[in-house]
C-alpha cells in the first residue's frame, strides 16, 4: 500500500488489503477533518478488509468524494453504506 494525503486528497495506490488496513485506518482517523476526496486511481488490489475501511470512511464523512477512472467502475459491484 502507498497511501498519501495531500491537499485534502487521500490517494490510495497499489493495494488496500488486510495487510494495509491498520495503517490506512490510523491515517484516516488522524486526518479525518482534512480528507475531502479519496483517489482510487492507483488502486489495483482491494479486499474485503479494504472495502470495510472505505465504508467506515463513508460513514464518517458522507460528503466524501471518490475519484476513479470510469472504466474501473463495474455496475455489477456495488457497495452499500446504509441499510438501503
Amino acid at each position: 500500500m502507498n497511501i498519501e494525503l495531500r491537499d485534502g486528497n487521500l490517494a490510495i495506490n497499489e493495494s488496500l488489503t488486510i495487510e494495509d488496513v491498520k495503517d490506512a485506518w490510523n491515517l484516516i482517523l488522524k486526518n479525518l477533518s482534512e480528507i475531502k476526496t479519496v483517489d482510487l486511481n492507483g488502486l489495483k488490489d482491494l479486499d474485503l478488509a479494504g472495502m470495510q475501511v472505505l465504508l467506515m470512511l463513508v460513514h464518517l464523512k458522507q460528503d466524501i468524494k471518490f475519484i476513479m477512472p470510469p472504466t474501473q467502475g463495474d455496475p455489477r459491484f456495488v457497495l452499500y453504506s446504509s441499510n438501503n
Binding site: N41, L46, Q62, P70, D74, P75, F77, L79, S81
Partner: peptide, 19 residues
C-alpha cells in the same frame, strides 16, 4: 479519464468498483 462519485447523505450508496 476520471470521474467523481458522490455519496448523498442518508442514502449513501457508493459504487466503488471491482478492484
Amino acid at each position: 479519464e476520471h470521474c467523481e462519485t458522490s455519496t448523498s447523505a442518508g442514502k449513501a450508496t457508493t459504487v466503488i468498483s471491482s478492484a
